[in-house]
Design a protein around this nucleic acid. Sequence first.
DNA 1: GCCAACGTTGGC
DNA 2: GCCAACGTTGGC
Length: 153
Amino acid sequence: MAKRCWLVKSEPETFSIDDLAKKKVAGWDGVRNYQARNFMKDMRVGDKVLFYHSNAAPPGVAGLAEVARTAYPDPTQFDPKSDHHDPKAAPNAPIWFQVDVRFARKFPRFLSLDELRGIPELADMLLFRRSRLSVQPVTDAQFKAIVAHAEDV
DNA sequence: GCCAACGTTGGC
DNA sequence: GCCAACGTTGGC
């Protein structure tokens, strides 16, 4: 697998970078989009993960995590009480998967979506074109540009 | 809170 | 297999 960098979105009201910092490792459950799921299945332990705050004021990249465990069935799909329950899924036929992510660090500078849009190296970023994709690959060059800006204090 | 974009569902 | 209706995401 060539891809090594990803961007994942979370609504900070639900689960923020600070929540991950406290928890250290978290299961990235609740993804219910096939394309996002397929990207998670491509993730390998140690892959870099940009933590993006969506539906926030402002939205943007808050920090860095890494993949701690490769894809395994998301248990919330089997739980009728969960918001993420999927009646079509069964333990012997899971539909949805999650990975575990480990906190790496919070960036010294939060990079807002507005600011990301202004970085020339990111002109082709999926984030701008596929605004609803919650797990997406990031190229090495894009990743480096984001980290460089986030640490340029 | 609004609404545009877009993914999913279901009738045909 | 098309496409209208519907639901959700996410920026503003």
